[in-house]
Design a protein around this nucleic acid. Structure first.
Length: 273
DNA sequence: ACTGGATCCTGATCGC
DNA sequence: TGCGATCAGGATCCAG
């Protein structure tokens, strides 16, 4: 389940594997992922130089010399690989044949992912995104200001892409634990001090996960197929019923916004009643 | 305007 | 062994 660190890792690897090349042919094997992908068949993707691969939130952006963009979102099970030519496997939906003879394959069993071509940088889904968590502009004051009118629980607040983009379910659990904030604490009751802590740990944990090459919680793999190393670092996510590594209390699980949240009832006591 | 819930999808896992 | 139920969860849409 790629979150920001995974998408950053993937995007950096794609930049190495793609910049300077061009796509010579596109094959599409499914009608749609989260959005229709048949339009890629006729999209003018071919024979223009790939000049950069960027990341915005959880999207990879493959940029071409004419200013057009191939946008990729990995959903939860999306994987992109650059491989020698080989047979199509189950759940591989798109082949981008590259000018060096390799193929960039897009695979996604659950088809929650998105691959779309845009003629220019005017991309509606990107305009809805909040601030980048690793930018200098994202600080405690920013988060505190954004929280003022929101009664939503802290967990849902920091995973809201319109506020800050790219903090998913796993890292949110780790951040709240590290900051000692209860996932149910209303956002508008967060203190500036708590917001400073949340921002500090968001940056620290995301950067650390990037250094580790992303997590391997689910089926995340690098572009070359190897695994990330962050999975073993998780201190709270998925550990309900086990003992807190700090205080030994039993870790609890609750559901928020239809997603599992994990927290230590002793270390994360900040919720006000 | 804001919030919570349903929806999309398939594979892994669990209980019986 | 097999079958149905449940869970995983990012983004979007809709109802209240």
């Amino acid at each position: 389940m790629p979150e920001l660190p995974e998408v950053e890792t993937i995007s950096r690897a794609l930049a190495k594997g793609l910049v300077g090349l061009h796509i010579v042919k596109t094959e599409v094997f499914s009608p749609r992922l989260r959005t229709p992908i048949e339009p890629l068949k006729s999209a003018p993707l071919c024979n223009k130089k790939i000049v950069a691969v960027d990341r915005r939130g959880r999207y990879s952006l493959v940029r071409f010399s004419d200013g057009s963009v191939l946008l990729m979102h990995y959903g939860m099970t999306g994987v992109v690989r650059i491989e020698e030519p080989s047979e199509r496997r189950k759940h591989e939906h798109i082949f981008f044949h590259l000018s060096n003879g390799m193929i960039m394959k897009f695979e996604c069993p659950r088809r929650f992912s998105q691959v779309e071509y845009f003629a220019n940088d005017d991309i509606p889904v990107l305009k809805k995104l909040g601030i980048e968590p690793l930018s200098d502009e994202f600080d405690g004051r920013f988060l505190y200001a954004a929280a003022q009118k929101k009664k939503t629980p802290a967990k849902l607040f920091i995973t809201d892409n319109a506020v800050v983009t790219g903090v998913g379910n796993i890292y949110a659990a780790e951040v709240l634990f590290a900051a000692g904030v209860h996932p149910e604490q209303p956002a508008n009751e967060l203190t500036l001090k708590q917001c400073n802590l949340l921002v500090e740990h968001i940056k620290r944990i995301l950067n650390f996960a990037i250094e580790c090459g992303g997590s391997t919680i689910s089926d995340f793999r690098h572009v070359d197929g190897s695994q990330g190393a962050f999975a073993r670092e998780l201190k709270i996510y998925g550990r309900d019923g086990e003992k807190c590594l700090v205080c030994g209390s039993v870790i609890e699980r609750i559901v928020q916004g239809g997603r599992s949240s994990f927290y230590c009832p002793k270390c994360q006591k900040s919720r006000k009643k």
